[in-house]
């Protein structure tokens, strides 16, 4: 980092203002974006930092969502524990699947992540007693946030807005941890592996082990995002684990720019708003969205953030 601007804090404070804009719709949109931003950021730990293309990242998002929803709804476990459990369970599955995945490289790695994700999807789709099968789980309760009433200024808000504050705080916290991870020596090693895995091996890095660690961390944060999404969405469904969801998060990351820390979050923001605006006006949204994406990807090969920072550099030089 060349200049120490506390971006996380700035964005966090700006996002905090959304409920005061007056429309519940903006709060709802902002919650969606914040959660998906975390999901995309977790993928970027693999994609942008370690150079591993995962086609099955939605599996961990879905596992987190199911874990949290099942614990909260069926077992009545409080949100704090369910949320933590969602991350741990997703991380555990990432470990189990990752052990196999990191044995392969490039497209084989990608295909294996996809295979594991589809297996997980099939289990969620079929295991009626636990996951609710095709219909999933609906009516996941909002966490009990009555404590927030005691905080001055927040007492007047309705539960969805209170939940937004919780989401924002948890996502910001996750961003801080992710930033710490990528800037730590461990994170730097991941970058080395991305740039040149053979060389990394030669200088004595246990490449597979590092890749596995990145895989587990990415799965863990995806699980946390999934837990929040399940509550926000009031239900979890097998769709959340389907490969289309994995593709969606991959697009977010590429669109925003996998080369920068904030890229995936910007991608999540842009894709969510694009989707919302376009589907509101036409049912031929795949055509419009596809065209917009093609243009964006061709004009900004480094993603939106990549293009912006290139422009900023050029301005500074001029």
């Amino acid at each position: 980092m060349t200049h120490r601007i506390p971006w996380i804090l700035i964005v966090f404070l700006a996002a905090l203002c959304v409920p005061w804009l007056g429309s519940r719709f903006y709060t709802f949109l902002a919650t969606d974006i914040a959660i998906l931003a975390l999901f995309a950021m977790s993928l970027n730990l693999l994609l942008g930092y370690t150079g591993l293309v995962s086609f099955g990242h939605a599996a961990y998002f879905g596992i987190g969502a199911y874990t949290c929803a099942i614990l909260m709804q069926t077992a009545g476990v409080p949100f704090v524990f369910s949320f933590a459990a969602a991350g741990l369970v997703a991380g555990f599955f990432a470990l189990v699947f990752g052990v196999f995945c990191v044995r392969l490289t490039k497209i084989y790695f990608a295909m294996l992540t996809l295979a594991f994700a589809q297996i997980t999807w099939a289990i969620c789709f079929k295991w009626n007693d636990v996951t609710g099968g095709e219909q999933g789980f609906s009516g996941v309760p909002l966490p009990d946030l009555s404590l927030m009433a005691a905080i001055p200024g927040l007492g007047g808000f309705r539960p969805p807005e209170r939940f937004y504050f919780v989401v924002l705080a948890l996502v910001a916290l996750s961003f801080v941890v992710l930033r710490r991870i990528v800037e730590s020596p461990f994170g730097r090693m991941l970058t080395v592996i991305r740039e040149n895995p053979e060389r990394a091996e030669f200088i004595g890095l246990h490449v597979r082990r590092y890749e596995l660690a990145a895989f587990v961390l990415a799965g863990l944060f995806a699980g946390l995002a999934g837990a929040l999404f399940g509550i926000f969405n009031r239900g979890v469904f097998p769709d959340l684990l389907y490969w289309t969801k994995s593709a969606e998060v991959l697009i977010m990351t590429l669109l925003g720019g996998m080369g920068s820390f904030w890229g995936p979050a910007v991608g999540a923001l842009v894709l969510t708003l694009l989707n919302q605006q376009i589907t509101a006006y036409t049912q031929y949204w795949p055509l419009v969205l596809g065209s917009v994406l093609i243009v964006l990807l061709f004009v900004f090969p480094g993603g939106i953030v990549g293009a912006l920072s290139a422009a900023a550099r050029r301005l500074r030089r001029a």
């Binding site: 429309s23 719709f25 949109l29 979050a265 910007v266 842009v270 919302q276 605006q277």
Partner: peptide, 16 residues
């Protein structure tokens, strides 16, 4: 990010 959100909000408002 904030600017973009405001832009989105403005678009959404125009839609309403």
């Amino acid at each position: 990010m904030r600017v973009r959100r405001l832009l989105g909000a403005a678009c959404a408002f125009a839609g309403v």
